[in-house]
Design a protein around this nucleic acid. Sequence first.
DNA 1: TTTTTTAAATTAACCGTTTAACTTAGCAAA
DNA 2: TTTGCTAAGTTAAACGGTTAATTTAAAAAA
Lengths: 346, 346
Amino acid sequence: MKKKATLNDIAQRLNLTKVSISKALRDHPDISEATKKKVKEIAREIGYRPNLIARSLTSSKTQTIGVVVPKIAHTFSAQVVAGIQRYANSKGFVIVLTVSDENPELEKKHIESLVSMQVEGLLVSVSMTTKETEIYNWIREMQIPLVFFDRYIPDLGFNSVVIDDRKAAKDAVGHLIKSGCRKIAHLAGYNHVSIGRQRRQGYEEALLEHGIQPDPRMVIEGEVGEDAGYRGFKELLARNIEMDALFSVTFPVGLGSYVAMREIDPSMIDRIEMLAFGDSGIRGIVPYPHYYVEQPGKEIGRKAAKLLLDEIEGNAKPEDRLVYVPTRFLETDSDLQVTEIELDES
Amino acid sequence: MKKKATLNDIAQRLNLTKVSISKALRDHPDISEATKKKVKEIAREIGYRPNLIARSLTSSKTQTIGVVVPKIAHTFSAQVVAGIQRYANSKGFVIVLTVSDENPELEKKHIESLVSMQVEGLLVSVSMTTKETEIYNWIREMQIPLVFFDRYIPDLGFNSVVIDDRKAAKDAVGHLIKSGCRKIAHLAGYNHVSIGRQRRQGYEEALLEHGIQPDPRMVIEGEVGEDAGYRGFKELLARNIEMDALFSVTFPVGLGSYVAMREIDPSMIDRIEMLAFGDSGIRGIVPYPHYYVEQPGKEIGRKAAKLLLDEIEGNAKPEDRLVYVPTRFLETDSDLQVTEIELDES
DNA sequence: TTTTTTAAATTAACCGTTTAACTTAGCAAA
DNA sequence: TTTGCTAAGTTAAACGGTTAATTTAAAAAA
C-alpha cells in the first residue's frame, strides 16, 4: 500500500503549515478564500483523504459502534444486523461486526478488542452459555454505552431491546388451547438463557390459565439448533409422550422436529399442530411452521441502535430497562397464505 | 463514558515514564522483571486496555478490513459475511461492515470512509448499477488491497472470487434440456451486471449446443428481487410465451414467479420445471426451487478473505484474476429430499 | 500620526503509543 | 585507577490531526 497523502504534503506544496491546511479544508474563517481554493485543489489533485485514526486520537470520537452477535448466517441475526447497520449509518456511524459463535470467551475477547478500538458504544446479543459478567460490570463502571438485544443479561444496568417472549409465548399457546389442543409438548431452550426461560414460562402460564397442569415430562430443554430439535422430538417419542401440538423454542428446533416426523411417521405432521418462534425467512411457500411468532429482526436492530446512539449522544441514560418490540402471531393456512391472528388483550 | 486509563496513569503511580510502561507491558528486555510485575499488576488493577487507535497511528496497522455488500438481510450475503468474518477473525482481523443497498453512490462513500478509517484492505461486492470506476482506479493506484466477491468489475486489476456463472448456468440448463425440456424461458438480470450477463450467456450456449435457437422474446431482463420475478413472469404470459421450464437468475426472482403462478394458475407449478441460482436457506422442506445451483456463500467469503489477507501480508500480488468457487447442482425430489446431480464434464 | 482592530496566518501543545537515541549507576576487566 | 560494558531506565521525536495561543502586517479608527 502506498503512503497516503497527509496535511503536511499539501502544506509543503503551498509553503504553508499543516495547521493552515487543516483549517482550510474545514472552512475555518482564519483562512482566506483564495488560499482555501488552492488548498482544496491540491487536496483533490493528490487524492488527500483525512486520516480518521489521527482525527479520532484528538477528538476521542470514532463514529464507530461495536456489534457482537452469536451467529450471523441466520435470517434473524442478519435482519437485526441490517437494522442496526441502516440506523447507525443514517447517523454517520459505522459498525464493527464480530461473531461470538455462541462462545462466551470469544464474546469477551471481542468486547475487549472493540473497547480497545475505542468504539463509542456496544450492541451485544449474549451467547447461550454466558455466565461470567465481569466484563459487563467493567463496561458499566467505565460508563461505556451498551445495549443488549434479543438475548440479554438482567440487572446489570443496561437497556435491552427484546421481544416479550413470555407474553408472546403465552398468547400463542393460549391460542392453541382455544383451538382445541390439550396435549402440548415443548422443545425448550435452556432455563438459564432468557429466551428459554421466558418462553417456557409463558407456555406454563397459558396452560395453567386454561386449567391444564404443566407436565415436566412434556418439556425438553436443550440447544436451539436443528439438531437439538431432531433429537428432542425423538426423546419425546421415547418418553411415550402423546401430543396434539408442539411448541418449539426456535424455528430451527421446529424444523428439526419436522424432519424427525417426516422420517418416522409423516402423518404426525398433520396430526400435530406446530408452533414456533421465528420464521423461515421466506413467506407463502413453506407449509411450516403452521403457527409462528414473527420476530421483527430489523426493528429490533433499529431500536437497539437508536437507544445506543441516543445514549452516546447524551440524550438518554442507561436504565436497566427492557424495551419490548411488538411481535406478530401468524398462521400459514392450507393454501400457504399467511395471515396475522389478532389476539384479544386479556 | 469515563476517561480510560493510559500508560501515563500507570507511570505516575509508579514514578516511571510511559515509555517504560509501554515496554514493560510488551515484555521488552529493557525492563527488569520486578518492574514488569509491578506494572502489570497496576495495569490490571486500574483496568488498563491499550488504545488501538493510538497504536495504529504509529504502526500504521489497524488489523481491520472493510466490507461492502449490496444487502445483508439475505441468506447469501449473510453466509458470505459469515465466511469473511470467520477467516478474518482467525487471522486477528476485525471487519467493518457497510451496506450499499445497491446504491453506487453509497458504495463509493462507504469505500472512501473505510479508506479514511485506514482499513488494511477491502472486500467489495459491487452494486447492480455501478458504472463509475474512478474510485476503484484510485484504490488500485494507491495499491490498497481489494478483492471483489460475487459481483465484480473486470479489467480493473483486482482479484475476484466468484462462481463460474456461465458454466454453472450452461450445465444446469443443459441438464433441463437432456431431461426433455425444449421451451425454456429465462428471467434474467441486467446485461451490464456480471451475474446477469454470464448466466444468460450460459443459458444461450446450452440451448445452441443442443440445437435450440435462443429466442429473445423468452428472456426478460430486470432486477433480481421477488418483485421483478413476479412482474417478469406476468410479462412472459402477456407475451403469450409457452414454456416447459423457467430459469430464474436468482432465488428471489424464482420465488416471485412462483407466487405469480400460484395466483394465476397453480397447475403451472407442476407443468413448468423451475431452475434458479441460490437456495432458500432451508433445505428439505421447501418444494421450490426444483433444480437449483447452490452458491457456497461461506466458501466465497472465506476465499475472498484469504486472498485479501495474503495480499495484505505481502504473500500475494493482485492479479486481475478470477477465482472460481465450485457450485453444486441440486434437485429437490417429490418427497423433498435434496440430492446433488453430478454433471459429466463435457 | 498614533493606536486599535482585523485578517491570515504561525507556533506550541496535545491525543496515546512506539521507536530510536541517549543517560546513569554499578560492576567487571585491564 | 581508569576504561568499558551492561542493566534499566529516560528523553526526544514521530504518527496525522486538532485546538489554543501567539505573531505579523495591513487596514481602520482615534
